[in-house]
Design a protein around this nucleic acid. Structure first.
Length: 577
DNA sequence: GCCGTTTTCGGCCCGACTGTTTTCAGTCG
């Protein structure tokens, strides 16, 4: 039973209770717990053996939820959840996913019209039955129909890197609007989340209409969802929603803080404010005296956080995880930046599936100011990419020896290999070959659907191989496309720690593997992370920035990341001579 | 359902916008 399984169960309970119209705070308790558990660095199943008190020490887990976790882990199911599922068919919960339909409307549709599925809802709308319900109307019916088609588009979250393109495009478009004094993209984009659900633009201007008119002329726009005095929402061709807020300059900081979120971060912040007789909203910070309110801050984020004697948290840390605890103990990590990185230890060339030569990759790396790189083409098992057999890899390393002679001092070119971990276990190249490398990466590309124990044992076997220095993309997930394979990361962390091996944060925006939660867990275990681009072309080296963002979300400092060190220091770290 | 120097009850962040109302509920972020 993984943390994700437990979190899924609590999410489902939350959804059903929400649908049933239960106390919203009770619903929130389940959702909070789910989130905390999903992000929790230790395995709850292991903690269950240490007893209930251990579980109750987790924020948001009380007597009741601790008992439910124990039942779930020990028996594999939860009677309460089975009960709820019997009362509300799971297909009904899909109604809640339609934008514009919340628990009240979903319940009305289910109760009054007996609707159980999206197909039935569509039929009811088409027949005009929905608009006759109390609290519904013609407009509501249309919104539901539109919302359903959006849901059917299997609307995926966008990679941060893609969102970043749209941000650049929108910045350019909005730059033509003269009255804009300040403009910032907020929300999950600013927090650097790996995927983005929608984009939020915050603007200071004394001419709201001019700003909204300009956004309305964005060429990609397909629909204006709302337009009020301060807020406007549009949808663009890709299905992405863009929300605009216009505020006065005196509120810019408060609004920037507010719309950057996360929601969880803000809930904690406002709770703290309330305890001190303050109120924080998007317009400012206010001292509450009876029914009078005195405005005391709001122009900058610093002003807002200062009122609570808090640091201006880097946006990447604002997830309501551990940032307030860190701030209270003065241990807010100084997050890694792109310029801290000295080397890149995972990239490909034309020898396998890359598009550039070794020399071209070297030139690109030097242009980017790196001091060392490892060429790590695929091993023979990856036949699709013409992976290297022992003879070819030795030839490549001989070629590297030649290139080295022409390189200036201060730049180090390393003989590396991305060696597959075979399906049956063991490495794809013989030890006497691996022994000649400067840098050996172990990767899983095949047999990703094997059971948990088998995959875990394969990775542990690789970690125990004395020639291996790092495990690449340790969970194999591809965002929006492929789930992580089943692997016992607790065991991987323990083995990496024991054998002094490193784990990768692969900076490819579709991988970002390890994810932020696991990178944070690795940090707690004292296992250095290596941020690599896995570049297949010179431009691919630019992907570093996505890995840095993810590392910052994990709270990693320069020290937590191995390739901020010189190669000489790195060698020592992985026990190479 | 959680939580606690206002501590075992009574709170739980807060406001904008829309549609269906005629003063507000529902939804969203």
């Amino acid at each position: 039973m993984t943390n994700a399984h437990i979190a899924d169960a609590f999410d489902l309970i939350g959804d059903i209770l929400d649908f049933k119209g239960e106390n919203p705070f009770r619903v929130r308790a389940y959702r909070n717990a789910s989130r905390t558990i999903r992000d929790y660095p230790e395995s709850l199943a292991a903690m269950v053996e240490l007893g209930k008190e251990k579980l109750k020490a987790i924020e948001g887990i009380g007597d009741d939820l601790a008992a439910k976790i124990m039942t779930l882990v020990q028996t594999g199911s939860l009677p309460q959840l089975e009960d709820l599922k019997a009362q509300v068919p799971e297909s009904v919960l899909a109604l809640l996913r339609i934008p514009g339909v919340g628990p009240r409307k979903a319940a009305a549709l289910h109760k009054e019209l007996g609707i159980k599925t999206l197909a039935e809802l569509k039929a009811a709308c088409d027949a005009g039955k929905v608009q006759k319900l109390k609290g519904f109307g013609v407009k509501t019916e249309q919104i539901i129909l539109q919302g359903m088609s959006i849901a059917e588009q299997a609307h995926q979250r966008m990679y941060w890197a893609e969102a970043n393109q749209i941000v650049a495009d929108l910045r350019e478009h909005m730059a033509d609007c003269r009255s804009i004094e300040q403009l910032e993209f907020t929300g999950s984009y600013r927090r650097g989340k790996e995927t983005i659900g929608d984009l939020d633009i915050l603007v200071v201007s004394d001419d709201v209409n001019q700003v909204m008119d300009r956004l309305g002329k964005y060429p990609e726009i397909t629909q204006t969802l709302a337009r009020g005095d301060t807020k406007m929402s549009i949808r663009v061709a890709s299905g992405l929603q863009i929300d605009l807020r216009v505020v006065p300059a005196e509120s810019f900081g408060a609004a920037l803080q507010y719309f950057t979120g996360s929601k969880e971060h803000n809930v904690i912040l406002r709770g703290m404010a309330k305890d001190k007789g303050l109120k924080i909203n998007e317009w400012g910070v206010f001292r509450v005296k009876g029914d009078k309110e005195e405005r005391i801050a709001g122009a900058s984020e610093k002003e807002v956080y200062d009122t609570l004697k808090l640091p201006v948290f880097p946006p990447e840390l604002r997830e309501g995880r551990r940032e307030f605890e860190w701030a209270a103990s003065g241990k807010l990590p100084e997050l890694i930046t792109e310029k801290d990185i000295r080397g890149d230890l995972h990239m490909h060339t034309t020898a396998t599936d890359g598009s550039a030569s070794i020399e071209e990759m070297v030139a690109a790396a030097r242009a980017r100011g790196l001091a060392y790189i490892a060429i790590t083409d695929h091993s023979q098992r990856v036949s699709m990419a013409r992976g290297l057999n022992p003879q070819r890899v030795l030839e490549q390393w001989a070629e590297i020896d030649n290139i080295r002679e022409k390189l200036p001092k201060g730049f180090t070119l390393l003989k590396g290999i991305e060696c597959d971990i075979l399906e049956k276990g063991g490495m794809d190249l013989p030890d006497d070959v691996l022994a000649q490398a400067d840098w050996v990466i172990a990767s899983i590309h095949y047999g990703q659907k094997q059971p948990r124990q088998q995959i875990t044992e394969r990775i542990l076997g690789a970690i125990e191989n004395p020639h291996v220095s790092m495990v690449a993309h340790p969970t194999g997930r591809l965002l929006n496309r492929r789930e992580a394979y089943e692997v016992d990361l607790d065991a991987v962390f323990a083995a990496a720690k024991k054998h002094g091996k490193l784990l990768e944060l692969n900076a490819n925006p579709q991988r970002l593997d390890l994810n932020d939660v696991y990178c944070a867990a690795a940090r707690q275990h004292g296992i250095p992370i290596v941020i690599n681009t896995d570049a297949h072309s010179p431009d691919g080296l630019e992907m570093l920035r996505y890995g840095i963002l993810q590392a910052r979300r994990a709270g990693l400092t320069k020290d937590d990341v191995a390739n901020t060190r010189t190669w000489v220091q790195m060698k020592k770290l992985v026990g190479k001579k």
